[in-house]
Amino acid sequence: MHDQLARIKSHIDTHQHMAGALLPLLHAIQDDLGYIPEDCYGDIAKALNLSVAEVHGVVSFYHHFRTHAPGRHILQICRAESCQAMGSTQLEAHAKSSLGIDYHQTSPDNAVTLEAVYCLGNCACSPAIMLDDQVYGRVTPQQLSQLLAKAREVAA
């Protein structure tokens, strides 16, 4: 906890003098901790001459930012048109049923958080998914199962 606070403070120190610093700072915190703890809003606000309300407004606006720790892996499935044209709805259903969760939820073993994404720019290789930082193209339900099984073996 103390360590977390110190890390947040160091990100604040590195970013607070940038023009339009809030998003880069929030990214830095989330990249480091996996999420943005709400109890650091006050420190962020103070350093950036903002109100806590403004920080909350910004964090809650952007779907990328999360305020609670996700599962060990984050699986994003592209829901956009090109992937739909190549069968992403089946992939989506497969992911939900095999993980036993819906979008924005984490599997009971805390291994995988499932999120929707609207285009990964991999439209020539639809359907596409992103598992943590890796994009995969032309993904079949079987491939998805293999990827998830592998991910569950290895801690992120």
Binding site: S51, V52, A53, H56, S60, F61
Partner: peptide
């Protein structure tokens, strides 16, 4: 005050 969330979920909020 801020607006929390976006789109249809937009809600006036006194911070978090």
């Amino acid at each position: 005050l801020t607006i929390q969330g976006r789109g249809f979920d937009s809600k006036v909020a006194a911070g978090n």
